[in-house]
C-alpha cells in the first residue's frame, strides 16, 4: 500500500511562527499569485478592462494598488503580479478569473507554485528588513504602497510595504522560502539585540 501524498507548505510547521521583540514573521504562502504581462498588446484596452473589473489603474511605477478582491503589484514595465485577498487558498481560482476577464489582452500565468509571500510586521521590522535589503526603507523613500524588486542577501525578492506599523510582504521563489525565513528570523533577532 503506497503512502498517500500530502501537500506540504514551503516552510516547516515549526519554522512558521516568529514573534519576539516587537517583530512578527508570518507565513502567507496560501495567497494566490498570478503574473499579468502585456507582451506588446494594447495597453489602453487592458487598462480599461482592469478598471471596469476591479476599479483600479494598473501602476506604471513600483507601487501596489488594491482592487476589489485582489491587489496588483507592479513587477517591471508592463508587467504585474496579481495577488488574491484571501490568504488561505479559499477564494476563486485567481488565474482563471484573470484569464476569463482579460482574455487576449494580456498573458496570465499562475505563479502560486512558484512564489511564496512572507510577512514581517511590527515596530522593529524596518530595522530587521534593512539588514537584508540593499534599498532605502526610510519612510521618505519607501512607504505603504511602494514596492521594489531587489535582492535579500543573494535571494531575489519582491517586497512591498503594507502599512505604517510597519508591515512588509516579501515575495520569494518557493524553494528559497525556508532560507529567506531563516534570514528574516536572524535579522529580527539582530535588530532586537541592537534596539
Amino acid at each position: 500500500m503506497p503512502d498517500p501524498l500530502h501537500a506540504r507548505g514551503p516552510l516547516s510547521p515549526s519554522a512558521c511562527s516568529y514573534d519576539h521583540g516587537g517583530i512578527r514573521i508570518t507565513d502567507m504562502s496560501g495567497r494566490q499569485v498570478a503574473g499579468v504581462a502585456l507582451l506588446g498588446g494594447d495597453r489602453a484596452a487592458l487598462d480599461a478592462t482592469v478598471r471596469q473589473a476591479w476599479g483600479v489603474d494598473l501602476p506604471d511605477t513600483p507601487r501596489i494598488v488594491a482592487g476589489s478582491g485582489l491587489t496588483f503589484a507592479w513587477a517591471g514595465p508592463d508587467q504585474w503580479l496579481a495577488l488574491s485577498d484571501a490568504v488561505d487558498d479559499s477564494g476563486p481560482d485567481l488565474e482563471h478569473v484573470l484569464r476569463t476577464t482579460l482574455g487576449p489582452l494580456a498573458a496570465v500565468t499562475d505563479q502560486g507554485d512558484s512564489r511564496v509571500a512572507l510577512r514581517i510586521s511590527g515596530p522593529g521590522s524596518r530595522d530587521a528588513l534593512s539588514r537584508l535589503l540593499p534599498i532605502d526603507l526610510h519612510p521618505r523613500a519607501f512607504s505603504p504602497g511602494n514596492t521594489a524588486l531587489t535582492l535579500a542577501g543573494h535571494i531575489g525578492v519582491q517586497v512591498w510595504q503594507v502599512d505604517s506599523c510597519p508591515t512588509y510582504d516579501i515575495l520569494v521563489f518557493r524553494s528559497f522560502a525556508r532560507s529567506l525565513h531563516h534570514d528574516l528570523c536572524a535579522a529580527a533577532r539582530g535588530a532586537a539585540r541592537a534596539a
Binding site: 540593499p134 534599498i135 531587489t150
Partner: peptide
C-alpha cells in the same frame, strides 16, 4: 529608469 538607484550587484 524603472527602479531607481541600485547597487551594481543587481545588474
Amino acid at each position: 529608469p524603472c527602479c531607481g538607484e541600485r547597487g551594481l550587484d543587481e545588474f
